[in-house]
Simulated scan of single mutants.
Amino acid sequence: MIIGGTNLDSVIFDLDGTIWDPVDTVLQAWNKAIQHHIDLETELTREDLESIMGLQIHDIGEKLFPHVEETTRLLMLEDCFEREVDELKEHGGALYDQVEEVLEDLSQRYKLFIVSNCQDGYIETFYMFHQLEKYFEDFENPGRTGLSKGENIRLVMERNNLEQPIYVGDTDGDRKAAAYAGIPFVFASYGFGEVSDYEKRIETFGEMIEI
Protein backbone atom coordinates (compact mmCIF):
# COMPACT_ATOMS: atom_id res chain seq x y z
CA MET A 1 0.00 0.00 0.00
CA ILE A 2 1.53 3.28 -1.09
CA ILE A 3 0.26 6.80 -0.44
CA GLY A 4 2.16 9.90 -1.43
CA GLY A 5 5.15 7.75 -2.36
CA THR A 6 5.43 6.31 1.16
CA ASN A 7 5.37 2.62 2.05
CA LEU A 8 2.99 2.25 4.97
CA ASP A 9 3.40 0.01 7.98
CA SER A 10 0.36 1.04 10.04
CA VAL A 11 -3.03 2.76 10.04
CA ILE A 12 -4.29 4.95 12.88
CA PHE A 13 -8.05 5.54 12.88
CA ASP A 14 -10.32 8.14 14.36
CA LEU A 15 -13.46 6.51 15.81
CA ASP A 16 -16.63 8.64 15.60
CA GLY A 17 -17.58 9.36 12.00
CA THR A 18 -14.84 7.06 10.75
CA ILE A 19 -15.49 3.55 12.11
CA TRP A 20 -18.93 3.99 13.69
CA ASP A 21 -21.80 6.45 14.12
CA PRO A 22 -22.78 6.58 17.82
CA VAL A 23 -24.89 9.75 17.62
CA ASP A 24 -28.39 8.33 18.10
CA THR A 25 -27.35 6.43 21.22
CA VAL A 26 -25.29 9.32 22.62
CA LEU A 27 -28.11 11.80 21.97
CA GLN A 28 -30.46 9.93 24.29
CA ALA A 29 -27.85 9.87 27.04
CA TRP A 30 -27.00 13.55 26.74
CA ASN A 31 -30.58 14.81 26.79
CA LYS A 32 -31.25 12.75 29.92
CA ALA A 33 -28.14 14.16 31.61
CA ILE A 34 -28.65 17.79 30.66
CA GLN A 35 -32.15 18.04 32.15
CA HIS A 36 -30.64 17.39 35.59
CA HIS A 37 -28.43 20.48 35.34
CA ILE A 38 -30.16 23.19 33.30
CA ASP A 39 -33.53 23.99 31.73
CA LEU A 40 -33.53 23.83 27.94
CA GLU A 41 -36.46 24.95 25.82
CA THR A 42 -35.59 22.28 23.27
CA GLU A 43 -33.54 19.12 23.47
CA LEU A 44 -30.26 18.68 21.63
CA THR A 45 -30.60 17.31 18.11
CA ARG A 46 -28.52 14.92 16.05
CA GLU A 47 -27.21 17.93 14.13
CA ASP A 48 -26.01 19.50 17.40
CA LEU A 49 -23.94 16.44 18.26
CA GLU A 50 -22.59 16.05 14.73
CA SER A 51 -21.33 19.64 14.94
CA ILE A 52 -19.09 18.90 17.95
CA MET A 53 -17.61 15.59 16.82
CA GLY A 54 -13.85 15.59 17.26
CA LEU A 55 -13.79 18.50 19.73
CA GLN A 56 -12.46 18.31 23.28
CA ILE A 57 -14.64 19.00 26.31
CA HIS A 58 -13.87 22.73 26.71
CA ASP A 59 -14.65 23.45 23.05
CA ILE A 60 -17.83 21.34 23.18
CA GLY A 61 -19.10 23.35 26.13
CA GLU A 62 -18.42 26.68 24.48
CA LYS A 63 -20.11 25.62 21.25
CA LEU A 64 -23.26 24.00 22.65
CA PHE A 65 -23.79 25.92 25.90
CA PRO A 66 -22.11 29.34 25.55
CA HIS A 67 -24.49 31.01 28.03
CA VAL A 68 -24.04 28.42 30.79
CA GLU A 69 -21.56 29.21 33.58
CA GLU A 70 -18.33 27.30 32.99
CA THR A 71 -18.30 25.25 36.20
CA THR A 72 -21.86 24.08 35.60
CA ARG A 73 -21.04 23.42 31.97
CA LEU A 74 -18.12 21.17 32.81
CA LEU A 75 -20.04 19.22 35.46
CA MET A 76 -22.92 18.75 33.03
CA LEU A 77 -20.66 17.51 30.24
CA GLU A 78 -18.89 15.10 32.58
CA ASP A 79 -22.33 13.71 33.44
CA CYS A 80 -23.12 13.47 29.72
CA PHE A 81 -19.94 11.52 29.08
CA GLU A 82 -20.62 9.10 31.95
CA ARG A 83 -24.16 8.45 30.78
CA GLU A 84 -23.16 8.00 27.15
CA VAL A 85 -20.70 5.24 28.07
CA ASP A 86 -23.49 3.46 29.98
CA GLU A 87 -25.86 3.79 27.01
CA LEU A 88 -23.21 2.62 24.54
CA LYS A 89 -22.44 -0.42 26.69
CA GLU A 90 -26.09 -1.41 26.34
CA HIS A 91 -26.93 -0.29 22.80
CA GLY A 92 -23.63 0.34 20.98
CA GLY A 93 -23.33 2.55 17.91
CA ALA A 94 -23.92 1.93 14.22
CA LEU A 95 -20.88 0.49 12.48
CA TYR A 96 -20.30 1.73 8.95
CA ASP A 97 -20.61 -0.83 6.16
CA GLN A 98 -17.87 -3.46 5.88
CA VAL A 99 -16.02 -2.32 9.01
CA GLU A 100 -15.13 -5.74 10.40
CA GLU A 101 -14.38 -7.16 6.95
CA VAL A 102 -11.97 -4.32 6.21
CA LEU A 103 -10.33 -4.38 9.65
CA GLU A 104 -9.75 -8.10 9.38
CA ASP A 105 -8.14 -7.67 5.96
CA LEU A 106 -5.97 -4.70 6.95
CA SER A 107 -4.86 -6.24 10.24
CA GLN A 108 -3.22 -9.10 8.35
CA ARG A 109 -0.90 -6.62 6.62
CA TYR A 110 -0.66 -3.55 8.86
CA LYS A 111 -0.73 -2.64 12.52
CA LEU A 112 -4.00 -0.89 13.37
CA PHE A 113 -4.65 1.73 16.08
CA ILE A 114 -7.32 4.16 17.30
CA VAL A 115 -6.71 7.73 18.46
CA SER A 116 -9.92 9.61 19.28
CA ASN A 117 -10.89 12.76 21.18
CA CYS A 118 -12.97 11.05 23.83
CA GLN A 119 -13.15 10.26 27.52
CA ASP A 120 -11.43 7.36 29.22
CA GLY A 121 -13.54 4.21 28.79
CA TYR A 122 -15.19 5.24 25.51
CA ILE A 123 -12.96 3.26 23.14
CA GLU A 124 -13.12 0.30 25.52
CA THR A 125 -16.93 0.43 25.24
CA PHE A 126 -16.66 0.35 21.44
CA TYR A 127 -14.39 -2.68 21.71
CA MET A 128 -16.70 -4.41 24.18
CA PHE A 129 -19.98 -3.99 22.33
CA HIS A 130 -18.74 -4.78 18.82
CA GLN A 131 -15.99 -7.27 19.73
CA LEU A 132 -13.40 -5.56 17.51
CA GLU A 133 -10.51 -5.16 19.94
CA LYS A 134 -8.69 -8.12 18.38
CA TYR A 135 -7.88 -6.08 15.27
CA PHE A 136 -6.12 -3.22 17.09
CA GLU A 137 -2.67 -3.04 18.65
CA ASP A 138 -3.18 0.04 20.84
CA PHE A 139 -5.34 3.14 21.35
CA GLU A 140 -5.19 6.56 23.00
CA ASN A 141 -7.42 9.48 23.95
CA PRO A 142 -7.22 12.76 25.91
CA GLY A 143 -9.32 11.26 28.72
CA ARG A 144 -6.28 9.18 29.67
CA THR A 145 -3.44 11.51 28.71
CA GLY A 146 -4.79 15.06 28.76
CA LEU A 147 -3.03 15.58 25.42
CA SER A 148 -4.33 16.88 22.09
CA LYS A 149 -5.18 14.47 19.29
CA GLY A 150 -1.98 15.30 17.44
CA GLU A 151 0.07 14.67 20.57
CA ASN A 152 -1.75 11.39 21.17
CA ILE A 153 -1.02 10.28 17.61
CA ARG A 154 2.66 10.98 18.22
CA LEU A 155 2.47 9.11 21.53
CA VAL A 156 1.04 6.01 19.83
CA MET A 157 3.67 6.25 17.11
CA GLU A 158 6.49 6.45 19.65
CA ARG A 159 5.06 3.77 21.93
CA ASN A 160 4.69 1.29 19.07
CA ASN A 161 7.78 2.25 17.05
CA LEU A 162 5.74 3.17 13.98
CA GLU A 163 7.77 4.41 11.03
CA GLN A 164 5.23 5.06 8.25
CA PRO A 165 1.65 5.37 9.55
CA ILE A 166 -1.32 7.22 8.09
CA TYR A 167 -4.24 8.75 9.98
CA VAL A 168 -7.85 8.22 8.84
CA GLY A 169 -10.48 10.67 10.07
CA ASP A 170 -13.51 12.71 9.09
CA THR A 171 -12.95 16.27 10.36
CA ASP A 172 -10.60 19.16 9.78
CA GLY A 173 -9.40 18.67 13.35
CA ASP A 174 -8.31 15.19 12.31
CA ARG A 175 -6.42 16.67 9.38
CA LYS A 176 -4.66 19.15 11.65
CA ALA A 177 -3.79 16.39 14.11
CA ALA A 178 -2.24 14.29 11.35
CA ALA A 179 -0.28 17.32 10.15
CA TYR A 180 0.95 17.95 13.71
CA ALA A 181 2.14 14.35 13.88
CA GLY A 182 3.75 14.67 10.46
CA ILE A 183 1.86 11.84 8.77
CA PRO A 184 -0.47 11.59 5.72
CA PHE A 185 -4.20 12.12 6.21
CA VAL A 186 -7.00 10.07 4.63
CA PHE A 187 -10.36 11.87 4.68
CA ALA A 188 -13.43 9.74 5.46
CA SER A 189 -15.93 11.87 3.58
CA TYR A 190 -18.95 9.85 4.75
CA GLY A 191 -18.42 11.08 8.33
CA PHE A 192 -19.37 14.28 10.14
CA GLY A 193 -16.93 16.89 8.82
CA GLU A 194 -15.82 18.79 5.74
CA VAL A 195 -12.14 18.73 4.76
CA SER A 196 -10.56 20.27 1.67
CA ASP A 197 -6.92 19.24 2.10
CA TYR A 198 -5.96 15.56 2.29
CA GLU A 199 -3.69 12.95 0.70
CA LYS A 200 -6.52 10.53 -0.05
CA ARG A 201 -10.32 10.61 0.20
CA ILE A 202 -12.61 7.63 0.79
CA GLU A 203 -16.37 7.64 0.18
CA THR A 204 -16.93 4.41 2.13
CA PHE A 205 -14.99 2.50 4.76
CA GLY A 206 -14.57 -0.33 2.29
CA GLU A 207 -12.36 1.85 0.10
CA MET A 208 -9.60 1.56 2.70
CA ILE A 209 -8.68 -1.73 1.05
CA GLU A 210 -8.65 -0.24 -2.45
CA ILE A 211 -6.40 2.76 -1.75
Rank of each mutant, 00 (worst) to 15 (best):
45 T>C: 08
45 T>L: 12
45 T>G: 11
46 R>M: 08
47 E>Y: 01
47 E>A: 07
47 E>S: 13
47 E>R: 03
48 D>E: 04
48 D>Q: 11
49 L>A: 12
49 L>M: 08
49 L>I: 14
49 L>Q: 06
50 E>H: 12
50 E>W: 09
50 E>Q: 14
50 E>C: 12
50 E>K: 05
50 E>N: 14
50 E>T: 05
51 S>A: 15
51 S>C: 11
51 S>D: 12
51 S>R: 01
52 I>D: 06
52 I>P: 02
52 I>C: 08
52 I>Q: 05
53 M>A: 14
53 M>E: 05
54 G>C: 06
54 G>Y: 04
54 G>A: 10
54 G>D: 06
55 L>Q: 01
55 L>H: 00
55 L>W: 06
55 L>A: 03
55 L>S: 05
55 L>Y: 03
56 Q>E: 10
56 Q>T: 13
57 I>R: 12
57 I>K: 01
57 I>F: 08
58 H>N: 13
59 D>Y: 02
59 D>F: 00
59 D>T: 10
59 D>C: 00
59 D>I: 02
60 I>G: 09
60 I>T: 13
60 I>H: 02
60 I>N: 04
61 G>C: 13
61 G>Q: 13
61 G>L: 10
62 E>T: 09
62 E>K: 09
62 E>L: 10
62 E>F: 05
62 E>A: 11
62 E>G: 11
62 E>H: 04
63 K>W: 07
63 K>T: 13
63 K>S: 10
64 L>D: 11
64 L>A: 08
64 L>R: 01
64 L>P: 04
65 F>G: 02
65 F>H: 01
65 F>V: 00
65 F>R: 04
66 P>Q: 03
66 P>D: 03
66 P>T: 12
66 P>Y: 07
67 H>I: 00
67 H>N: 11
68 V>F: 06
68 V>R: 04
68 V>H: 09
69 E>Q: 14
69 E>F: 02
69 E>P: 04
69 E>L: 05
69 E>C: 03
70 E>A: 00
70 E>I: 11
71 T>N: 07
71 T>G: 09
72 T>N: 01
72 T>I: 15
72 T>W: 04
72 T>G: 06
73 R>N: 10
73 R>M: 07
73 R>V: 00
74 L>M: 13
74 L>W: 01
74 L>R: 03
74 L>A: 01
74 L>G: 00
74 L>Y: 08
75 L>F: 12
75 L>K: 11
75 L>T: 00
75 L>Y: 03
76 M>S: 09
76 M>H: 04
76 M>Y: 00
76 M>A: 07
76 M>W: 03
77 L>R: 07
77 L>H: 03
77 L>F: 01
78 E>D: 07
78 E>W: 00
78 E>N: 14
78 E>C: 04
78 E>A: 10
79 D>Q: 08
79 D>E: 14
79 D>H: 12
79 D>C: 14
79 D>V: 15
80 C>H: 04
80 C>D: 04
80 C>A: 09
81 F>R: 07
81 F>S: 05
82 E>L: 15
82 E>N: 15
82 E>I: 15
83 R>P: 02
83 R>Q: 15
83 R>W: 09
83 R>K: 14
84 E>H: 09
84 E>I: 12
84 E>C: 15
85 V>R: 15
85 V>E: 07
85 V>T: 15
